[in-house]
Design a protein around this nucleic acid. Sequence first.
RNA 1: UCCUCGGUAGCUCAAUGGUAGAGCAUUCGGCUGUUAACCGAAGGGUUCCAGGUUCGAGUCCUGGCCGAGGAGCCA
Length: 434
Amino acid sequence: MPPVVEIRNIAQFAGQEVVIQGWLYNLRSSGKIVFPLIRDGSGIIQGVVVKSAVSPQVFEHARGLTQESSLRAAGKVRADARAPGGFELDITGLEIVQYVPIERPYPITPKDHGIEFLMDHRHLWLRSSRQRAILGVRHEIIKACRDYFDDRGFTLVDTPIFTPAACEGTTTLFEVGYFEDKAYLTQSGQLYNEATAAAVGKTYCFGPTFRAEKSKTRRHLTEFWMIEPEVAFAHLDDAMALGEGLVAFVVERVLAKRRSELKVLERDVAKLEKVVPPFPRLSYDEAVKILQGKGSEIQWGGDFGGTDETLLSEGFEKPLLVHRYPSQVKAFYMAPDPARPEVALCVDMLAPQGYGEIIGGGERIADEKLLVERIEKEKLPPETLGWYVDLRRYGSVPHSGFGMGIERVVAWICGLEHVRETIPFPRMLYRLTP
RNA sequence: UCCUCGGUAGCUCAAUGGUAGAGCAUUCGGCUGUUAACCGAAGGGUUCCAGGUUCGAGUCCUGGCCGAGGAGCCA
């Protein structure tokens, strides 16, 4: 019995008998020769079945294969300049594991489909080369993020999904029943990160985040994944440097390990290769002036809209760090700048090419009195934030952190039109299935 | 929530108010090197739903359902 091998490793088996197990991707035939394209999740290889070289049963099996039928194919690996992967499989044995019946064929053909049809068949669409490439890049990005923090002495500390109240009081939350009580799905692990940062010094959490906003744009999901570091004794500049280092590291890693996926996605890698520190830094004041110069309606004191972000980032080849927004547009826990109390020690990182905000964060209020004032001013429920104020009573220190939305980073690095393709099963305003 | 656009064969789309069409997919036939293979033939329709106007509606009108893009809000 020849060894079962993965298509990605096929080069090591040139000239040898192997078994490939996978699914039929496409089939071309020419009378007495059949070319089944087989994918196994690690790659695609073209098989060759010649009528005169195999039993009539194997040939008939091959000729009648339907798209996505699962199979095991035995044969000899042969280097061939005509093959896209450099190798072909001369099939001598074929076992059909499950035959997709012709009365109910695989719905997704190699031809054009509309987005609604593809989203309805997301569970099958994931098998296509393009979606597989995105899943690969997403995996690499998440692994790179974790390596970056792990290698710098951070401890991953998970934060809860059920929360008693809004973290920030700004966004709409999903309400769920919690026995006789109500709970909300988390919109950020940050407040809990502030607690755990005092325990381990440098922490991060990585998990799903939920926003019940009725946003219907290419940058929004109702359920998305966020990685959030928090560092004790760190100031705004430290958070900016940490975010800059993280994004540069992630891009470098993807370029090093996922070239083939970026090629499938037709990503212009030259643009990604320019993403090296230092990233440009701009104060909110400067950003407003630039925007006004480009014809935006923005006034000092307002937050940027999607068009503003695109307008601002289009002048730069690297991600852009915008810092010191007016406190009024930022969350209650943002520390005011001692030199200018009307602005917060916060930072947003805007990805190039209109991909929007990928990082948001800054320095947190360390002073108990000021924090309590802010909670009262925002009319947040003090009973559920008592523990958070407690952190300012027992060894309060300056601390900073940020959150990075994984899907927007994936969309940017892959060069996708819409974040819905960056997550296996997107949850959106009008999409809960599959 | 608001604005714009759309819903016709399994899929992608055509069709001036006048017989419902093409490409792909499927089935059958042909082809020993195909690369979204190609060539020939066949089958395939509650035109999203409910009303209305009209001699006649896929097309026009009203309401609804579903979806897409954008705005606001946000990562």
